[in-house]
Simulated assay, not measured.
Amino acid sequence: MLRHRYCSRLLIASIIGRLSLGMVPVALILAAQAEGHSLASASLLAALYGIAPALGLPLLGRLADLRGLLLPCYLGAALVAVALGTLAVAGTAHLPLAALCVALAGAGCPPLEGGLRSLWHAVLPDDAHVRTAYTLDSSTQEIVYVTGPALAIAMATWLSPAAALALGAAVTVAGSLAFATAPPARAWRAAP
Rank of each mutant, 00 (worst) to 15 (best):
M1N: 08
R3E: 10
H4S: 06
R5P: 11
Y6N: 14
R9H: 11
I12R: 05
G17D: 05
R18L: 10
L19M: 11
G22V: 04
V24P: 07
V24R: 13
V26W: 12
A27F: 08
L30I: 15
A31G: 05
A32E: 10
E35I: 03
G36S: 14
G36A: 12
L39P: 07
L39Q: 13
A40H: 09
I51R: 07
I51F: 14
A54Y: 13
L59D: 02
L60S: 01
L60Y: 01
L60N: 00
L63A: 02
D65M: 03
G68P: 08
L69F: 01
L71F: 03
L71C: 01
P72T: 00
C73M: 09
L75R: 00
G76P: 01
A77L: 02
L79A: 14
A81I: 08
A81R: 13
V82G: 02
A83P: 00
T86W: 09
H94N: 10
P96W: 05
P96K: 07
P96L: 04
L97G: 07
C101I: 02
C101E: 05
V102C: 07
V102Y: 04
A107Q: 06
G108Y: 01
C109Y: 06
L116Y: 06
R117D: 09
R117E: 07
R117G: 08
S118E: 07
H121C: 03
H121E: 10
A122S: 14
A128G: 13
A128V: 15
A128W: 04
V130T: 01
L136E: 08
L136S: 07
D137Y: 04
T140V: 08
Q141P: 11
Q141V: 12
V144K: 04
V144G: 03
Y145E: 00
T147H: 05
T147E: 07
P149V: 10
P149A: 07
L151D: 03
L151V: 07
A152G: 02
A152H: 06
A154I: 04
M155V: 12
L159A: 14
A162N: 11
A162P: 13
A164V: 12
A166V: 08
A170L: 15
V171F: 12
A174M: 10
A174D: 06
L177R: 06
F179N: 09
A182L: 15
P183C: 11
R186M: 01
P192L: 02
